[in-house]
Design a protein around this nucleic acid. Sequence first.
DNA 1: CTACCGGATTTTTTT
DNA 2: AATCCGGTAG
Length: 747
Amino acid sequence: MLADPDGFPPSDDPFEFPPRGDPLEFPPRSSRGPSTLLADLTKPQLDAVTTTEGPVLVLAGAGSGKTRVITRRAAHLAATVTQPWHVLAITFTNKAAEEMAQRIDGLGVGAGMTVCTYHSLCVRILRRHHAAAGLDPRFTIMDQSDRRKLVKEAMDRCELSTANFSPASIDAAISLAKNMMQNAEAFAEQADRFDNKAAARVYAAYEQLLAEQNALDFDDLLMRTAILLDGNAEVRAQLSDRYRYVLIDEYQDTNVAQYRIARLLTESHRNLFVTGDPDQSIYGWRGADIGNILSFEKDYPDAKVVRLEQNYRSTKRILSAADALVSANVLRKEKSLWTENDAGDPVRVVACEDNRDEAETVAREIAERIAAGRSPSDFAVFYRINALSRSFEEAMMNAGVPYRIARGLAFYDRKEIKDVLAYLRVMVNPRDMVSLERIINTPTRGIGDTTIEKLKAHAAHNGRTLFDAVRDRGGVRLPKRSAEAVDAFAELMEGLSRHADSRPRTALETTLSLSGLNASLLQQADGTNEPLENVNELLNAAAEYQRDHPEATLLDWLSHTSLLGDSDVVDGPAGAVMLMTLHAAKGLEFPSVYIVGVEKGLLPFERMGEHPVDVEEERRLFFVGITRTMRELTLTLTRRRMRQGAFLPAMRSPFLDELPGDELEWTDRGSGGARRPYAPVGETPDDFDCWGVGSLVRHPDFGVGQIVGLRRGARQSTVEVEFPDRGVRSYVVEFSDLERVDFDEVD
DNA sequence: CTACCGGATTTTTTT
DNA sequence: AATCCGGTAG
């Protein structure tokens, strides 16, 4: 059986050792001998694979065959050094875990090995050792949007107005604290400024809310596991005996909690193998500490260090562009990537009129190449933010290009999906108040806000849960209609809870029909009933899951769905053009890559008035995108871009100026014939050739005018335009219908 | 209690 | 642009 990236094969309880029966009965050893596993490796790769004992650090440049090293090493360990179930490989994304498991399985030795993400490992550990961790094993895992709701509620409880503090920023502060293993108390102690102190109060209230409903958020999974391992020698010993060889990919992305887990897990045997590339550290905003990989050699002075610097993926020119870019980083460990591949074509830079033009240009070009015989799956489009995907989806569809998108509308974020899952979550964990509130009147059954508030107040007053109040509403004064509605709902949940131990698919089907969700979905039979299709897709997912995991419980499946990341759910056919964020692109490679929206404020991403993002990290992100490319790299940018409903003038990214000029080939797409090349742009608006003083614009009513004044505000820019017969008028650039006009377009 | 309308508000990145 | 929130009419 394949090493399971998400749940242990249920027939193979991970913590019972040996997993099943006599080890001799365990699936046959590798059909390929050790010699095959080690064949065709370069000297450094071979070192990394065969240094099986003690700490090993592999500094692996982009495209240097890192995945190959890890998979071979895992296979080698399982085949000749130890038993497969003693090998644990940890990745950051489900996608990476799945791919790694598959590749190891392809080598014929996957059986019994654990290949999973940090988060799913933690869920298993916490469920299994719930008593030691002080948890109820049926805990709910809160996703991003549930979590945001709870933060808001916590702010309410603290009587903190959302006018002065945004839930998003407080949420981020709490998350960062947790990733640094700082609990509410510790956070409060070091809070110096008034906003930190406010956040500290919310943190405490938020923790209270989580505890009340027996829920953990993503960060808790890591933090609690680290605390458990730290404080409980017995659990630690048990786990390190089970996992005698630990491999961690993308080590540059580990945060404090993850670092602690890795360290504690391997403390006794020190068989810790990590790979990573400091130049590809792009998760600092989530608490990842690049220092973890930089100081590995200090942590483990006896560590074997292997450098993989030969790139097998890209052309010389792409590599040189990537290298020039990342060399601009000051905080960097010098590294030289080289390749024996061809020089290849120059990197193309295409300046477009607006985002629509940009998307159509890319789609048209890809369509042409597919028509000329290229495979759609050769192509990928990367963007900094998901919001940019829309234009490209549209353009691809119009051009008849098959595409897949990582996180179109995140599947598990859709209302109908969240609704059904909320029922299941309440069935498993009745204390889950977020889910309960979600379903109590979905579909509408006559339980309004007033009634819910009364029930909540009653629950709070008696120190009971909301579910208790629903079940036994004695003492809550309600109008007859409402009372009946609540009773009916209580009865419904009573009936459903009997199915909490059903298999996932059965539970799902029962819930859909008994809850009335199915009926209400069927009712909206207008044309293509997308919600219904989505729910059917969910049924398929459940069926597939229980086929792959015959003994999985409803709880297991719910954990699985909570941990599925946005970029793991891919929409669209196989063999299609891939659309994804730069972050999601890490670890992949494509013959032809388009990185779009290479603009100031977008590629080094900035937000007005917020503390600036880490420019070096943004540069690394661009570096990651560039190094995904095997042969053809195209960068695109626009003159103006529609953002949040309004056109904004766009400027080129300063990163473009850091690329070696002689490796680039510029194209400027102008709608009106002759066009100056996209001008370099600096800080001030006057440098911007489209919206500078003196340039021409066209107004739908007043015709062509000349810009005579320009004011750049924090939130909006205003221009003063002089029209031949209307005098001077002011416009807010973002909201006006002004169009840029070239000098050569008018007489 | 529900449905609807209009105003306000959107943190980028992911587990 | 798209979603969410609050207020109001039915």
